Simulated assay, not measured.
Amino acid sequence: MTELSEFLRSRRARLSPEDVGLTPHGGRRRVPGLRREELAQLAGVSVAYYTRLEQGRGQNVSSSVLDAIADALGLSRAERDHLNHLVRPSRARKAGARPQRVRPAVQQLIDSMDNVPAYVVGRRLDVIAWNRMACALLGDYAAAPAHQRNMAWQIFLDPASRELYVEWERKAADIVAFLRLDAGRYPDDPQLAALVGELSVKSQEFRELWATHDVQDKGFGVKRIHHPVVGPLTLAYETLVLPSDAGQQLITYHAEPGSTSAESLRLLASWTLGATDSRTDAARPTA
């Protein structure tokens, strides 16, 4: 079964006829969620047409039909993007194995953020640049082997992450949803396939989350962290897309001014001043 088939089936399984205003057909339902014929009815296409698409035989499907199917399934923006990537693989898939480089100006920018943890994430959630505050808050990326400088690896295979993130289960689900979105964008990336394989073998929690086919793009929100040096922190995070650097996003953390977390973040900044500068070389390629 193709990735497209599994994704569409997982989205159908989330919905019941009652959810979308349909009267359930008689008889026992063998599978959860909407049947193919019910989804086809909602989208205004024939059952045969939708079945071909779900079986991976709909390469010539029109944008209007894809939009209708996405509307019928109630897909989010990230899910719509993922569906389009699966149906029409773009040139981006060929870029998956290229070395990732951070522009010197971007590294200089995050290094200038003295009290703001900041790092750059590339394809497959590789952490490809960071400042000293990011290392102080989240772990010393410079000291880690290259393949461990990865958000998914850190969450599922580094035991310290379970102590660091107060809401670890939510963080883990988000990370898998981010990674699944990248898998749709870069289906031919051998390093992404190797990462998914390693996590699947070593983490049952990853396997279970990966099987849900949930997708999500990084955005903004609040994270609660329990830091081993300064204690509990409630920090807002922002994700900034670097439009000239394909697949790269800058992530920053900050505390509400005047809060206990802001004071703790200042203490953490002071604590790191005497530490060795562990930032990445600005133009160093990362696997």
Rank of each mutant, 00 (worst) to 15 (best):
R101P: 00
F7E: 02
I251C: 08
R132W: 00
E256D: 00
K202F: 00
D214P: 00
R279L: 06
G74V: 13
R98I: 04
P24G: 02
V229M: 02
L265I: 05
S203Q: 02
Q148E: 13
S112R: 07
R91S: 14
E198V: 07
M113T: 06
W271L: 14
V241S: 09
G27R: 07
Y119C: 02
L199W: 04
R284M: 12
V20M: 10
V229F: 02
D188S: 10
D81I: 10
T212D: 05
V106Y: 04
R28V: 12
A275F: 07
L273K: 07
V47K: 08
I155K: 00
P17C: 11
S270I: 00
D281K: 06
A282D: 08
L235D: 01
Y49A: 14
E167R: 12
S200C: 03
A211T: 02
Y165P: 00
T272G: 03
H227E: 03
R36S: 11
T260F: 04
Q248K: 09
A173G: 10
S46C: 06
R77T: 15
L8M: 10
A177V: 06
Q59R: 15
D111N: 14
L181M: 05
A183P: 01
H213D: 04
D71P: 03
K171T: 13
K218Q: 06
R52W: 15
A43I: 08
H226M: 06
F156N: 05
R266L: 12
A92T: 04
P243I: 09
M133W: 07
A13G: 01
N115H: 13
T212R: 14
T276Y: 04
W210S: 05
P117A: 04
M151Q: 08
Q108P: 00
A43E: 07
S5H: 05
A13W: 07
M133I: 06
P32R: 09
S270K: 03
E238Y: 05
L34M: 12
Q55S: 11
L73T: 12
T2C: 11
V176F: 05
F206D: 03
Q148N: 02
F220N: 11
G74R: 12
V65T: 15
D281H: 09
E38N: 11
S203A: 03
D67Y: 03
S76D: 09
D281R: 07
E256Y: 00
D19P: 02
P99A: 03
K94H: 15
S16R: 15
E169W: 02
E263D: 14
N60P: 00
R35T: 09
F206A: 04
K218V: 06
A95G: 10
L53C: 10
P145Q: 08
E169A: 14
T252P: 04
Q55Y: 12
R35V: 08
D174F: 11
A48I: 08
R12P: 03
F156I: 05
G184D: 12
N150C: 04
L267T: 02
L137S: 01
D174N: 13
R103H: 14
N150E: 06
